[in-house]
Amino acid sequence: MSKYLVNKFLYTVDRDPHLVERYREDPRGTVEWWETERAGRILNCHSGEASTWLGFDDAERDALAGHDYPALFEMGAHPFLTLTLFIALFERDYDEPLGFQQEYARRLSHFTLPHPDIAT
């Protein structure tokens, strides 16, 4: 797994409200578009520099396209990046305060310490 690329996806999508909505409505299409158009861009570089070797593997692509944050966590995606993006995606679907955060914790509750390695 390329933790760097998965975390880069989570980070860049979370910081653009239009991409958040696009990812919510069309997750697979957004992942495919982002991988093709944005994955090779150097993070925070606007000078046109790009890389040509970065891409998701099938498990990463499926987890991202399926909004499967437990699988992403298990693969080593950074928990703060997954949490903030998925709050932006799904918090509005819960009536009670912190409803999504409680769901996130419940779905990750089967993990025990030490948690998956998040080092990139």
Rank of each mutant, 00 (worst) to 15 (best):
M1F: 13
L5M: 11
V13I: 15
D14V: 05
H18S: 02
H18Y: 08
P27I: 10
R28G: 04
W33K: 05
W33H: 07
R41V: 01
L43V: 13
L43Y: 14
N44Q: 12
C45F: 15
S47H: 14
G48M: 11
W53R: 10
L54I: 05
A59V: 15
D62I: 07
D62W: 06
D62C: 05
A63G: 07
G66N: 08
G66P: 08
Y69F: 15
P70S: 02
L72D: 00
L72S: 04
F73K: 04
E74I: 08
E74T: 13
G76C: 05
P79L: 04
P79K: 07
P79V: 07
L81I: 00
L81W: 05
L81Q: 06
I87F: 02
A88T: 10
L89A: 00
E91Q: 07
E91F: 06
D95P: 01
D95L: 09
E96H: 04
F100E: 02
Q101Y: 12
E103C: 04
Y104I: 05
Y104D: 00
R106S: 04
R106T: 06
R106N: 03
R107A: 01
S109I: 08
H110A: 12
T112D: 08
T112V: 13
L113Y: 10
P114L: 01
P114Y: 03
P114D: 01
H115E: 04
D117E: 11
D117N: 15
I118W: 03
A119D: 08
A119P: 01
T120S: 10
T120R: 13
